[in-house]
């Protein structure tokens, strides 16, 4: 493979190569065009369109769309308290979910690692919630929060008697509970796979050295599964920042705007109230850039900590 590459490079000026190149081009196109076509139609063009419209006043009511320069962006940053609040709420939500979900998933993965006969059973059980669609999970939990938990509280568990969805201070955590309930199993599967990749001789060596199991975990296991941690944090970070379905199904962002996450804020800007598509597009661009920066930083920082194995 390498030698061929080398010859291609050295002979790149010859006629023979040009003919080969043409043929290669054709086959290249043949293989890439279908994917590219769909990608262009349903991803690329809408994206470019969204960027363009973010600079306009496009809305449902007026038939003329005007170019308004940066004013949408300026409004989002300076004159939209709801957007700012929803962004802060999303950041708070994301920090909690990313940490809890990964710690919990890793913990469960470690516990399962020690089981032999029941390992598969537990894996199956913990992943089960992932089979339920997000919006359906939200509906299921509405039932749990409004009917089941209040009744359960009568058995001396008065802690469970909360306004789970109705109390603005509690509703936020209810959403987190559902997100963690549904998302942890997925991360657990990835952690289990990573843990299985830790060579037994390394763990044994640590034990012979007399390392306690916690130190063993910190100094041997963690570095070995850093790759998986990077991925899981990346996935949860991404998911959490874009959270929509669960909130939509559980509280609709309410009561008031107390649980309005940023994706919901954008959605409502576009599809309710004044139907300001252009402005909503501008806000979604800001969300995009924020997610992009945060995930790039995260992957960059965490990659640096991974050990080559």
């Amino acid at each position: 493979m390498d030698t061929e590459l080398a010859t291609v490079k050295t002979k790149s000026n010859t006629f023979r190569f040009n003919k080969a190149k043409k043929k290669k081009c054709l086959s290249f196109l043949m293989f890439l065009t279908p994917a590219f076509l769909f990608y262009a139609l349903f991803m690329l063009i809408p994206l470019i369109g969204a960027v363009y419209y973010s600079f306009t006043n496009w809305n449902a009511a007026s038939q003329v769309t005007r170019f308004v320069g940066l004013s949408n962006y300026i409004e989002a940053f300076t004159n939209d308290p709801y957007f700012k609040e929803s962004m802060l709420l999303t950041i708070k939500y994301t920090s909690i979910v990313v940490i809890v979900q990964n710690v919990l998933a890793l913990l469960i993965a470690l516990l399962i690692e020690y089981r032999n006969r029941t390992r598969n059973l537990f894996r199956t059980v913990f992943f089960m919630p992932n089979m339920v669609s997000l919006i359906i999970s939200a509906f299921m939990w509405s039932f749990i929060f409004t009917i089941v938990l209040p009744q359960l509280s009568e058995y001396g568990l008065s802690l469970l008697d909360q306004g789970w969805l109705g109390n603005p201070d509690v509703a936020f955590y209810s959403i987190i509970i559902v997100a963690i309930w549904r998302g942890t199993g997925y991360m657990m599967i990835i952690y289990i796979a990573a843990l299985q990749g830790v060579p037994v001789h390394l763990k044994e060596a640590a034990i012979i050295d007399g390392a306690s199991s916690f130190q063993n975990f910190i100094h041997v296991t963690i570095p070995m599964i850093m790759h998986a941690i990077t991925i899981c944090v990346f996935l949860t970070l991404n998911e959490a920042f874009k959270v929509f379905d669960v909130v939509y199904g559980l509280t609709g962002g309410g009561p008031g705007r107390s649980t309005q996450v940023v994706a919901l804020n954008i959605f409502e800007e576009a599809f309710s109230g004044n139907f300001r598509y252009g402005y909503a597009n501008a806000k979604s661009m800001i969300l995009f850039v924020i997610i992009l920066i945060i995930t790039i930083v995260q992957v960059y920082v965490m990659r640096g900590k991974e050990v080559e194995s």
Binding site: L32, M43, P46, L47, A50, Y53, F241, K242, A270
Partner: peptide, 25 residues
């Protein structure tokens, strides 16, 4: 480049394209 081009889209939140995608469809 093409590879990166495809990959870069994986970070785009659906909300960023939903309005124009609806129009396109």
């Amino acid at each position: 480049i093409i590879f990166l081009f495809f990959m870069s889209s994986m970070l785009i939140p659906f909300h960023s394209i939903m309005i124009t995608l609806t129009r396109m469809a």
